[in-house]
């Protein structure tokens, strides 16, 4: 287990370095941030001074080397635009995104697995068909369109829900959260539903497919032949087996829901890190872009690690680190 963790850590560092290098090249290729940062009327001398101050006058590889040295000591550079540490900027905004993503995921899981189970157990019933039809809709409607419709209906027409911002927040462990106040919840409702819809559809399909396959297995018939209650057969024998792929997908999707909350954040003006990223790309604010992607990739890596551990807990046939089970 320890050797496995160390190996995973090594791989992760490699991925992070490679990623940062690619982003460096990418931003370098798009354009020179100096053009955007300095007043167009400024003369050559002033431009040169600004470039030197930001280190942009040095060769590309040297710039990257400076960044790497800083990163090794936890310094991901200062934003060209705000002149603040890039990491601080992101960590300021990230909690709002994470809250949104978590609430969306909890909704998707809490509804998706039960609905998928029902649809999988009774695929030909009216309810089963209705659930499937709903999930096809959720799958195919574009997120931004659903977001706009939500605003049209619930904010503009009915006037029930606010259409932008986080609302009133409450401090929990030093972080502001929305879901503990009534106003915050009202603000959270639509963006969370919007973000959850796709994942919900995905989980319904996944659960339904898994259930349909599992109920045909001999171990389910054997469990029933033991005289177990329907609840135990489904809640333990079926669910524990289908949970294996579901946990994997939930893990992967949790990362992507954080990384790609951008669209939802833009529609509902949710003050999260997605909006910060869009602004930074527009201004070629390289340190923030690089730092944002590094933070997201780190999140992915951590989540994947947790999923692997969970996976090995759920499926006794899987042992971390590749040690074969004894026979």
């Amino acid at each position: 287990m320890l050797a496995y963790a160390i190996r995973r850590f090594g791989q992760s560092v490699f991925v992070l370095v490679l990623m940062s290098f690619l982003v460096f090249i990418g931003v370098y290729a798009i354009g020179n941030p100096i053009e955007l940062l300095v007043n167009p009327q400024a003369d050559e001398v002033e431009r040169a001074r600004a470039a030197a101050a930001l280190g942009l006058d040095r060769p590309f590889l040297e710039q990257y080397w400076v960044f790497l040295k800083g990163a090794a000591s936890g310094d991901l550079g200062r934003s060209f635009v705000y002149n603040e540490p890039a990491l601080t900027l992101i960590l300021d905004k990230l909690p709002a995104t994470i809250e949104l993503a978590f609430v969306a995921m909890v909704m998707a899981i809490g509804l998706g697995i039960p609905l998928g189970l029902v649809a999988g157990l009774k695929p030909d019933s009216f309810v089963g068909r209705a659930i499937m039809a709903g999930s096809i809709l959720g799958f195919s409607l574009p997120t931004f369109w659903v977001g706009l419709v939500l605003i049209m209906v619930f904010s503009v027409q009915l006037g029930w829900l606010p259409s932008n911002g986080r609302g009133e927040t409450m401090m929990v462990a030093g972080l502001p959260v929305s879901f503990l106040t009534a106003d915050g919840l009202a603000h959270l409702a639509m963006p969370a539903v919007n973000l959850a819809l796709f994942k919900l559809s995905l989980l319904i399909r996944l659960t339904r497919a898994g259930t349909r396959e599992a109920v045909l297995q001999d171990y389910v018939k054997f469990a029933r032949a033991k005289g177990l209650s329907q609840g135990r057969v489904i809640g333990v024998h079926v669910l524990k087996n289908i949970l294996i792929p579901i946990v994997t997908v939930i893990g992967l999707e949790l990362g992507s829901v954080i990384a790609f909350a951008i669209v939802t954040e833009s529609i509902f003006a949710w003050p999260g890190s997605g909006k910060l990223l869009i602004d930074s790309i527009n201004q070629l604010d390289r340190p923030v872009i690089v730092a944002y992607l590094l933070v997201i990739v780190t999140l992915f890596i951590v989540i994947n690690f947790v999923v692997d551990v969970l996976y090995s807990l759920l499926d006794p046939r899987v042992r971390l680190g590749g040690a074969a089970a004894s026979h």
Partner: peptide, 22 residues
């Protein structure tokens, strides 16, 4: 209440009848 109690059943393929994750 009779199933598995007064009448029990065993199946053909032992590789498939036990639940792999329990």
């Amino acid at each position: 209440s009779i199933r598995g109690n007064r009448i029990a059943m065993i199946f053909q393929d032992p590789m498939m009848t036990l639940n792999p994750v329990l």
